[in-house]
Design a protein around this nucleic acid. Structure first.
Lengths: 208, 208
DNA sequence: TGGCAAAACCCATCTTCATGCGATTTATTT
DNA sequence: AAATAAATCGCATGAAGATGGGTTTTGCCA
């Protein structure tokens, strides 16, 4: 039984070339190819593909929104994103939305079927620069973007796990007024005005 | 000029085999091979490697701690982690600590030099199952672990960006007392007692 | 149609936080 | 020796949050 591929790509030329590439490959079959994702749910239900290839930038509704929609009714169908740029700000968004792999278009001819095989095998095929972006997004910034002092970082850390001023004071064995002073300074540097904002910024920007 | 590789691996057999593998490969040179990471800083300063291969589990000080230490004085030196298990709970920790790539030991013989080349090229080589773990860790859980209602999720969302009760009430066009009620319910379900705890849990567990 | 969950609203009380102002001590650097 | 940054402590006040009671309305579904 062939592996059924469903393609979403607005560029006519690329869609055609993807289609014939898939159609000609032994062991693979083209389930369908569409220039937009407006009917993505019914098309998937209709064709029952094993893998979806999804362009990231499409007019009307983007590939990212489409992945999000797919994940709302199917959590396991592998979706491989296709994009021209590796500095596309949407790359991480697509992954968070539920994409299973990520291929730069310049790698399609050489890596497409490797990627499909890998994704069906439980992997997450990515072009090298994409993988680097992904890993980079999980790591702490190497600088100290807000110029927090050591003590301030320590306090932001425990604050971010839900400790009250009182608990922080006890933990560090300092007075509650000192805690207040440090937090005041942290707010200034992060440009926020509440614990919640500070914690949100700290976690999202990986300061803690 | 050959690419200089520095190896940290406590298993004598594997360290020897890695060493001879590297030494025999044209274009690569073994800068050194050590069974522990106790002197990692001075050894790196001494050998000036282009790439570090680091076992994840070593007695005394783990590879993860070593990566963290390396990153404290060198933010760009590529470090490729080596591990036997792909379900190792430490895999994500190592990446957060600053690892640049991640190879399962069963893939070493076939992929080591590809990985080294890729990492020097700005990529992030990972065995497929590792890549899948990484991507999985960035995605929302598909279930609804705390049984939050739609409204509760919406409110947790805006709460997590630092909005006050008042702002939330205005945004959703509901009374501030209703906001209170929803947040009470959210706290019950998440088992927390403050905004900060709720936001921390929400972001870290990717509920928002 | 009776029961139930979700969403909305109200009130009162105590706790915690945000912020402004001022001050001392310690270590480091010039 | 003076200057500076970091860390500490104190006080006061208004704003915001946490919690424990309630009630009503709506839509679903058994």
């Amino acid at each position: 039984m062939s592996i059924k591929i469903l393609v979403f790509e607005d560029n006519d030329l690329l869609r055609e070339s993807l289609s014939s590439l898939v159609a000609q490959q032994t062991g693979f079959a083209l389930a369908g190819a569409y220039p937009n994702v407006l009917q993505v749910k019914s098309q998937i239900n209709q064709h029952q593909p094993d893998v979806v290839l999804m362009d990231i930038d499409m007019p009307g509704k983007t590939g990212i929104e489409a992945v999000r929609e797919i994940r709302s009714f199917n959590t396991s169908l592998p979706v491989i994103m296709l994009t021209v740029f590796d500095d596309n700000i949407h790359v991480l968004e697509a992954i968070k939305a539920g994409a299973s792999g990520y291929l730069l278009k310049k790698h399609i001819s050489s890596k497409l079927f490797d990627a499909i095989t890998e994704v069906l095998d439980g992997g997450a095929p990515m072009s090298p620069s994409i993988a680097r972006m992904v890993i980079g997004s999980m790591q702490r910034p190497s600088e100290n973007p807000y110029q927090l002092t050591t003590r301030e970082r320590e306090i932001l850390n425990v604050l971010s796990t839900g400790n009250s001023y009182k608990m922080i004071a006890a933990q560090f064995n300092i007075s509650i007024d000192t805690v207040r002073t440090h937090i005041k300074k942290i707010y200034e540097k992060l440009q926020v005005h509440s614990q919640t904002e500070a914690v949100s910024k700290a976690i999202n920007e990986k300061l803690v």
